[in-house]
Design a protein around this nucleic acid. Structure first.
Lengths: 342, 342
DNA sequence: CTGAAAGCGCTAACAA
DNA sequence: TTGTTAGCGCTTTCAG
């Protein structure tokens, strides 16, 4: 394959390379006629500009990267397509880059910026410790999307889009309380976690305290560290343990829907029924939740809107038309069949 | 951020740029001492080589792209992490690129090769028509992973890794037949589909014919074209229609597990029970299948091994140590609780 | 073992 | 409206 370059096109059209460059970049200052002639030749010879050269030549690229902690997580992966669509709609190149749990996602972002000359970064998922991570060293605009920022820490003024995990966690537990439940168990994130799961757990505590119900620490369970977080497998293992303790409870709050799917199984295996014996609520609102038996009552995160907002905020910052915003979206309580009134 | 470049490092270390280049690339022909000195400076100044420049300077890059049709599909997304791990293990850069249904995935691949100077391509999912798509124009080694090649068409000699959809589809239907089922319905891919779903459907026909059971065309249903393929939503809609026809059947074969999840719901809503009234089998073997109620009997595709084989074949071709292979892996029949003996 | 210098393909002044 | 040319940061001969 002898790659066609801009020079070849220039030679063929008998023009200078810069003219070709103008033509393919939709630049001004070029006659319609020349442009069309060049564009035709481009098509005819299947010419595709080389991105590397472009990035090198230009002072900056047009690339935005989405850095995600767990590529595999169904909640995030359902957002990739939308990010691509939204970003391309605004004329940006898009890179999806996954970061391992062991890596510092911010450091990785900084590295990528240098490596690929990114114009902006979207951090998807995970947890940020603004005191440890060198946020101020990120040399381009960035937005945290569904990233939990520890409320115990000084709040960074970084741009972010997401829901209020505490608030929404509280709401769904209040929903259970309103239906007469007082013995409510929870499967939260891994122990010591200060991320998303922690926020929802905090909401759980607040709801109970607000209703004057004593918090029974034994009903607070954490996902296993040796299993992937937020998976059905993890939810199953934790719920099984919980059931085996023999502790009484009438409702269970799983901080993610997939976790709840695992909990369902453990509950069934123990011979109990949902919602007759135990009411279960989830969190996230993944499509699947409507199909399991029984369909699960959950807090639905407005994923589409999150993507749109994230892209809007980021591109605004890149264009300089807006400053870092903190967008907090509302989640929707989806009432389905996994809970009952006591 | 004043980006540190190779020149800066060279100047600081009082060496030539090529020496720095050798140091960071682990090239031979450089003293240990100089290398260490340079590497330290690199670390100290947070120097990160610019990929674009690297790609331009070098005759070729070290990048392999994974092109996937439906980024969102849970079956594929569960493989991303593994691809990244395997590819990085062998020293390759990794790009995940999603292709819209409307795009010609092969054409997109060719474009990417020119644009990013790829060293190889992995096509993940979808369907290839070797007569229409310009496979021979792909200028780098490539492997089809879980890509179905229409058996009605002249077989391309492209490298591929996957299971035999016909064979495995046949096996799981034979499993049902062995258990006394003769009225077996199927939810296949969309109508006119010649991809994965078509292969499994073919296996279904073969199994019935092999057992001398007449094929009742009314029991063959196709996923809706207006809904995303292989989703619970689609499976639900199709199964619901099927049940409403009033046709008798004792078993149902869903060509993907997620589809089966939707079918479960439709079956429950109709007041029937699984497997008492209807036995259900799925396909793919996603983790979730073990957690739904009842756990689904399914054909498990060896995803991990597929990834490993795909990377092995591709890198072999790139190194020139091996030629295009067609690797056909066996699926595992996972017997669970969604079927019963008649 | 090391350095100088010529590109890689493109963009973006600067001239014409 | 166009062409010329100097880089962008790196790799890679080719000499030393």
């Amino acid at each position: 394959m002898n790659n066609v370059t801009i020079k070849d096109i220039a030679r063929i059209c008998k023009v200078g390379v810069s003219t070709v460059s103008r033509a393919i970049n939709n630049d001004t200052g070029i006659s319609e006629e020349t442009r069309n002639r060049i564009l035709e030749t481009v098509k005819k010879y299947h010419y595709v500009p080389n991105t590397s050269a472009r990035n090198l030549g230009a002072a900056e690229t047009n690339t935005i990267a989405v850095l995600v902690y767990s590529v595999t997580n169904i909640f995030f992966s359902s957002m990739y397509g939308m990010f691509q669509t939204e970003l391309e709609k605004k004329g940006y190149d898009y890179i999806l880059h996954s970061v391992k749990d062991t890596q510092d996602i911010v450091a990785e972002g900084i590295r990528l910026v240098k490596e690929k000359r990114l114009k902006g970064i979207i951090f998807l998922g995970g947890w940020i410790d603004p005191t440890k991570m060198r946020l101020e060293d990120i040399p381009v605009p960035y937005v945290f999307c569904t990233v939990y920022q520890d409320i115990e820490l000084p709040k960074s003024d970084s741009a972010s889009v997401g829901i209020d995990d505490i608030e929404e966690g509280r709401r769904i537990v209040e929903y259970l309380i309103e239906r007469g439940h007082t013995r409510i168990a929870i499967i939260g994130g891994v122990e010591g976690d200060r991320a998303t799961g922690a926020g929802r757990l905090r909401g759980y505590r607040e709801a109970l305290e607000g209703a004057g119900i004593p918090v029974d620490e034994r009903l607070i369970r954490h996902m296993k560290k040796n299993l992937e977080e937020f998976t059905a497998k993890n939810g199953y293992a934790v719920c099984k343990e919980l059931l085996e303790t023999g502790l009484e409870f009438t409702a269970l709050f799983c901080v993610s829907d997939l976790t709840a799917v695992g909990a369902y199984r453990a509950i069934y295996e123990s011979g109990r029924r949902i919602p007759d014996d135990i009411s279960v609520v989830g969190f996230d609102g993944i499509e699947l939740g409507d199909y399991i038996e029984p369909p699960i009552t959950t807090m639905h995160q407005p994923r589409d809107q999150m993507v749109i907002e994230t892209v809007r905020v980021l591109t605004g910052m890149i264009d300089g038309t807006s400053r870092a915003e903190q967008v907090v979206l509302k989640a929707d309580l989806l009432e389905r069949a996994s809970t009952r009134r006591l």
